[in-house]
Amino acid sequence: MAKRSKRYRALLEKVDKNKLYGLREAVALAKELATAKFDESLEMHVRLGVDPRHADQQVRSTVVLPHGTGITKRVVVIASGEKIKEAQEADADFVGGDDIVQKIEGGWLDFEAVIATPDMMKSVGRLGRILGPRGMMPSAKTGTVTFDLATAVKEIKAGKVEFRVDKFGIVHNAFGKASFDEEKLYENAKALFGAILKAKPAAAKGQYVKSLAIAPTMGVGVKVDAAAAQKEIAE
């Protein structure tokens, strides 16, 4: 069994493993636990009562966090004709058509988000094996396949994040930096959790949220009272 560092053991002492914390309390404690030598992200981990093996139980959507993520994303837009100019005016970081597709096929990945117009998806489809595993493949469901490039670029720059359930039925997503003030982190956490609740598939039966935890990138997880948090979101 791997030995825990002195820092990690000290963090463990601050968390009551037998307690389910309130969402606000958990966010505040997770912020306190972010003691690494860099600005850690705070992450939400939600175990859902869905079977991702079934297409009708997939959980995937987006949410614009009210205070952003603390990370400025470099956005690539793949378009044609007049839409190239529109993307440039919307302050996309990289804009092009088939030339961008070929560049990515050649190994270029100096960006964090990709938007494409519907007419370019025939070419962009070739990038599935590259962008898919990185969670950057454009999709109409997440608003990244669209002709409304100005809105799409603006939302991503403002803090729009995509979340999706993994093969174990868990959603993992960062919702801000530990350097954010507590209130902003709490509001971001509420927005993310609310979006996950809203994304519940119609085919999901029984208890939807099995467990909820908040943790800094390099720290200890804090268990949250999921039932109380759901009521909090509904208020």
Score class of each variant (00 low, 15 high):
His54Arg: 12
Ala55Val: 13
Asp56Val: 08
Asp56Gly: 01
Gln57Ser: 04
Ser61Thr: 13
Val63Glu: 06
Val63Leu: 08
Pro66Gln: 09
Pro66Asn: 05
His67Trp: 03
His67Phe: 03
Gly68Thr: 00
Gly68Ser: 00
Gly68Arg: 04
Gly70Gln: 01
Ile71Phe: 03
Lys73Met: 03
Arg74Met: 07
Arg74His: 00
Arg74Ile: 02
Arg74Gly: 09
Val75Ser: 01
Val76His: 05
Ile78Arg: 07
Ala79Cys: 00
Glu82Val: 05
Glu82Pro: 10
Lys83Asp: 02
Ala87Arg: 10
Ala90Met: 06
Ala92Cys: 12
Gly96Phe: 02
Gly97Val: 12
Asp98Asn: 15
Asp98Thr: 15
Ile100Val: 14
Gln102Thr: 15
Lys103Asn: 11
Ile104Gly: 04
Glu105Ala: 13
Glu105Gly: 13
Glu105Gln: 14
Glu105Tyr: 11
Gly106Asp: 14
Gly107Lys: 15
Trp108Asp: 12
Asp110Gln: 13
Phe111Val: 10
Glu112Leu: 06
Val114Trp: 03
Thr117Ser: 13
Thr117Phe: 08
Pro118Gln: 11
Asp119Cys: 11
Met120Pro: 05
Met121Cys: 14
Met121Arg: 12
Lys122Ala: 11
Val124His: 01
Gly125Tyr: 12
Arg126Cys: 08
Gly128Arg: 12
Arg129Pro: 09
Ile130Ser: 07
Gly135His: 06
Met136Phe: 08
Met137Phe: 14
Pro138Cys: 07
Ser139Cys: 14
Ser139Pro: 10
Ala140His: 09
Ala140Cys: 00
Lys141Asp: 05
Gly143Ile: 06
Gly143Cys: 02
Thr146Phe: 05
Ala150Arg: 09
Ala150Tyr: 07
Ala150Lys: 15
Thr151Phe: 05
Ala152Tyr: 11
Ala152Leu: 11
Val153Asn: 11
Lys154Glu: 15
Glu155Ser: 07
Ile156Asp: 04
Lys157Met: 02
Gly159Lys: 00
Gly159Tyr: 04
Phe163Ile: 08
